[in-house]
Amino acid sequence: MNESSKRSKPITLDTFWRGVWKENPVFVMVLGLCPALAVTNTTFNALGMGLATLFVLVCSSALVSLLRNVIPKQVRIASYIVIIATFVTIVDYAIHAISLELYNALGAFIQLIVANCVILGRAESYASKNRITKSVVNAAGIGIGFTFALLCLGTVREILGSGTILEYPIFGDAFQPWVVMVLPPGGFFVIGAWLLLFSWLKERKQRRVVQQEEAARAPG
């Protein structure tokens, strides 16, 4: 057991928060764009997709972490894919049973969760090297960050594209929907705007850090 000898770091808030904010899969790492662009035309679809991904992410991370010492290195990717595919199938059936409407709206993108690089990336780079609790906490952070990003896209697109939030009209009948926002190009426009906002925030923060350092250095 190499990690007990290494004394792995304890679980901190950062284990969880890192995935939500600092390493947000969509806005910072720019991963998993296929579902982020394809099914976020309404808040409801975005939430459904986000939660489905969260479930697959947490469960597969747990199982991969449990089996990390059993899985031989040569077949690890194949094993991860089988594990992920299992949970995707479960989610697929569950959504089909819970809401036919959501199932039809998400279409093939539920099955495509299996190809979401965020999930395989977690399994390969985190769950296979860490204890189960830590892996689960980290995966939950990433999953919630992913859901958050999808919701950001979904609400903007639904408000502009249909004038509603969760199908509740907020502007009244006279509102002119921006049809392009619920079409695929709208996904690109909105994600572009969010990426712009996030990189602007990041840059501003960096600038402030630099300023503070200079201010600290100046008197001395």
């Binding site: 595919a85 569950a94 049973a97």
Partner: peptide
């Protein structure tokens, strides 16, 4: 190696079958 893969496949298969059994009538 094959035994491990087989084990994983079995766990997966079992889980999927259980879910299908439960959800199929609802769907």
């Amino acid at each position: 190696m094959i035994r491990t893969l087989g084990l994983i496949a079995m766990i997966s298969g079992l889980l999927v079958v259980m879910v299908v059994k439960y959800t199929d009538p609802i769907i």
